[in-house]
Write a protein that binds this DNA or RNA. Structure first.
Lengths: 329, 329
DNA sequence: TCAAAAAAGTGAAACGTTTCACTTGATAAA
DNA sequence: TTTATCAAGTGAAACGTTTCACTTTTTTGA
């Protein structure tokens, strides 16, 4: 490994001069600078990031902590984050969950974090966050000066979906919840309940866990009960898709026998048969927003602006009677 | 930030003793060790990763360099990598393409790399790789003692697909290539050509770029020509899906008018109408293999074992005449 | 022409670890 | 009792940067 010392020697200057030349800081003559840069080139020199970070107490890196890669859900969020980072001096690191995640966070290997992993406990977040280490949360409603929750406006989309179901006369309702520790699932359920209540309706609840199979199994369970609901709201699309699969196996069809609504608008949702009514949001914008606020905080100490990411209901075949709403795949 | 110095002071021992106690190295008495660990706990001490790495010249981290997050293609590969890393002491960092990628690579912030980003030039790879910095390549056939290509066995799948088409009597063939700089596209094309040649057939080639739209437009172009091919092989599924979309718009149906085959077996491919015949592979295993070999090299200097990831043809509706092969979605 | 100011460059400390070479005191062996 | 061995612990150097405080040289302005 060639160090700045080697470069300095080759250029015949002090280490300081070499550092100044390489970083374009300090005061250094043009001739010297050139000589240093040439030497660096010739020696194929690249500064040791660790030494630099150790000295600077800054990494110019932001970390994204997700629980796993799968689910095709994070993808667009990550792309949004990436798109913002590309225009800055920052680098982007994505770290999937594991004991090492905590280590990374704790060891301050990044200047700030975007967290999308509900397995990281609230206390950790609160303990870690500081002016020097701001954190943006995409998965829970926790907040202080250095912790910014950036959440979906679940209520908006759910209300639209409820109205859509209600106005078509679906009044016997069920709700399939997602993972028990999920903030989003809880909020979606709350809203759905509140709406139902204000229309003097009740809702049967089933506990799922966001997977396709849990939707499938919930549907089976419901079908084996004596009375079917008229409409079921699943806390995400994967469960809705599983639900529909089970219905198909029992020769039930949506929306004729049960209307089905999901959440997320994953790509698949418009390719199934029937297409899944769902609630969409711009995940790309979501990620971009998060990155934006984080960078702004880091660079200019711009205070965090809590904000909700808009969502909107997308009526499709699985919950729409009569004239079929056909979207081109 | 609390440092090891603070911990040592609080425990009333030297910095060395503290370090030994914390890392379980050196010789240190039980009583002292306990005192140090307590002090660390009380002060909420976490070692500074940069200082440590600087000293150790080791990061216990492997980096994955991809061009972008989108495409739902990397996802499973990443999961495979992750699954292996979880069982080791290593951490996983994923870094999307940008000027910073090069920086990261160059600055040795990781102990080894898995590269899936054809924008990184061959020379960079060769220049960087060394016993101390092994690199696994998922996107090109470059090799030496410290550079391991782990590629799909494109030939295998393509041959199966060719046979499937040939035996059904599709003898007028076309090939839609992917991005011009893609190794995989080139290899798929080569194999397809070789097969055709050995059966005294010729193939019309069209240049696509792996996107859905390029498949769509190629189809348009072909349809406007006077004679349609009997079968078209697209270098990936997205193009095949685009191709089918264009066919539908012209009231052509697969395989009746043109049989269509893709590559990759992306989730969507079995949800389209008709379902896309394609060539599948276990991307999860692919990632796992890469991680495995890299870790093995790092820990035990186990020499790299070049190997091809098996692929297999999956006949589906878009290329199968008569009895329809129906897979459950 | 001379003092003052600016430009160009230097040496050494510091960032927070780990670890080598060493000291101290106790225990065991002769 | 003396010496050798061992366990427990210490001080300081080293990792590769950046930057502060300083020196030397050149330029400027009167």
């Amino acid at each position: 490994m060639t160090t700045i010392r080697d470069v300095a020697k080759r250029a015949g200057v002090s280490v300081t001069a070499a550092s100044y030349a390489l970083n374009d800081t300090g005061t250094i003559g043009d001739a010297t600078r050139k000589r240093v840069l040439e030497a660096a080139e010739e020696l194929n020199y690249h500064p040791n990031a660790f030494a630099r970070h150790l000295k600077n107490r800054q990494t110019l890196t932001i970390g994204v902590f997700i629980s796993r890669f799968g689910g095709s859900f994070y993808e667009e969020v990550l792309e949004g984050i990436h798109s913002v980072i590309l225009d800055t001096d920052y680098e982007l690191l994505v770290c999937p969950e594991s004991r090492s995640t905590r280590r990374m966070l704790l060891h301050r290997q990044v200047d700030g974090a975007i967290v999308f992993d509900s397995k990281i406990p609230d206390e950790s977040i609160l303990k870690l966050a500081s002016r020097r280490f701001p954190i943006v949360l995409l998965d829970r409603a926790l907040q202080n000066d250095f912790v910014l929750p950036l959440l979906l406006d679940n209520a908006q989309g759910v209300r639209e979906a409820f109205r859509h179901l209600y106005e078509q006369g679906f009044h016997k309702l069920a709700f399939v919840a997602g993972a028990a520790d999920s903030f989003d699932s809880a909020e979606r359920m709350e809203t759905f309940f509140a709406e139902a209540e204000s229309h003097q309706l009740t809702v049967d609840v089933y506990q799922g866990n966001f997977t396709e199979i849990s939707g499938y199994e919930t549907a089976k369970a419901i079908i084996y009960e004596h009375t079917l609901p008229e409409a079921v709201f699943c806390a995400n699309d994967q469960m809705a898709i599983g639900f529909l699969r089970a219905m198909r196996e029992h020769d039930l069809s949506a929306p004729k026998d049960i209307a089905v609504v999901g959440f997320d608008d994953i790509p698949l949702s418009r390719y199934t048969q029937p297409q899944v009514s769902t609630i969409g949001t711009s995940r790309f914008e979501w990620g971009a927003s998060a990155a934006h606020q984080l960078i702004d905080f880091l660079e200019n100490e711009t205070p965090f602006q809590p904000q909700r990411i808009p969502t909107h209901f997308l009526p499709r075949e699985s919950s729409t009677q009569k004239q079929v709403v056909q979207e081109k795949p």
